[in-house]
């Protein structure tokens, strides 16, 4: 119980710092891949502080409420995860967070936001099957949905579920909002829907979104860590490697359309995830 509380507390305090630093490292690495010098490591923090100081224009009073709800659900989802809670609950809390974000975008009148919200929901449709397959796979291996139990699983999860792991990496690109799947809100407003889901956010609302995104990234890397939990140090290395691999992929792809996204992710889920589970069931007997 004590460790659970400690895990949740650590998450609340350390995750934004870690997420912000990761975002900074992401920007430097991206810049170097593009032949640029790039911003300082702490730039994301400066950005958020600056946003926090800015006057926030809101279209209606629900808008920031939804953003707050999004933030809260991301926090809850991560706290559950790092407290060793139920994996399914973690995934569904994260889903609810995404729905809140889409509702926030819907509450405004901007057509860009509306298209962004629609795309966010389509993206959720694209990654959700793979997330659930991951939970099922972990259950089959570790005989539990509890993260605390799974972290102490005897069989290294990544060795039992290599296909599921790869499939997860595939949909991770969507969640990290990276090319080729950065449809609903790319890191740059240079997009046909002008940053889509967050078009109508400014000031503190947008700052909240940024910080929530850092939290989210750390949580997602937590999933990666879970696959390697048999050796916690290796898990951290793996999580970092995965993150920088995603940055590289972000720089090596054009943005695709939602049709291609759904098709590709479902194909990945079916090919990598489902076949992995079938094979595991077959050999585990």
């Amino acid at each position: 119980m004590k460790t659970a509380l400690l895990g949740a507390l650590l998450w609340l305090v350390v995750a934004p710092i870690l997420g912000g630093l990761l975002a900074g490292a992401d920007r430097i690495l991206s810049a170097r891949l593009q032949g640029r010098v790039g911003p300082p490591l702490l730039q994301p923090f400066y950005d958020v502080l600056k946003l926090w100081d800015k006057r926030g224009g809101v279209v209606n009073r629900f808008q920031n409420f939804y953003m707050l709800a999004f933030f809260a659900f991301v926090l809850v989802s991560g706290a559950l995860f790092f407290a060793g809670g139920d994996l399914l609950l973690v995934i569904f809390a994260l889903t609810v967070a995404g729905v809140m974000l889409a509702l926030g975008a819907w509450s405004t009148n901007s057509p860009y936001s509306h298209v962004g919200a629609e795309r966010e929901l389509l993206q959720m449709m694209a990654y959700e099957p793979m997330f659930l397959l991951m939970a099922v796979g972990m259950y089959l291996v570790g005989r539990s949905f509890h993260v605390g139990v799974l972290a102490r699983a005897e069989v290294p999860l990544v060795l039992a579920l290599p296909g599921v792991f790869l499939g997860f990496l595939f949909v991770l690109t969507i969640k990290l909002r990276k090319s080729p799947f950065d449809l609903s809100a790319s890191h740059h407003a240079h997009q046909e829907i002008v940053r889509g889901i967050t078009t109508e956010y400014s000031g503190r609302g947008l700052a909240l979104f940024e910080v929530a995104h850092w939290y989210e990234n750390v949580l997602l890397l937590g999933f990666v860590w879970l696959f390697f939990s048999f050796n916690p140090a290796l898990g951290i290395v793996a999580a970092l490697v995965v993150y920088f691999l995603e940055v590289f992929v972000d720089n090596a792809y054009a943005r695709l359309t939602w049709r291609t996204t759904v098709r590709a992710t479902w194909a990945a889920a079916a090919l990598l995830g489902v076949s992995n589970l079938i094979l595991f069931q077959y050999f585990a007997r």
């Binding site: 690495l29 891949l33 032949g35």
Partner: peptide, 9 residues
């Protein structure tokens, strides 16, 4: 990309 990362910006 790899080449640019290795070289001076």
């Amino acid at each position: 990309l790899a080449k640019s990362a290795a070289k001076k910006p």
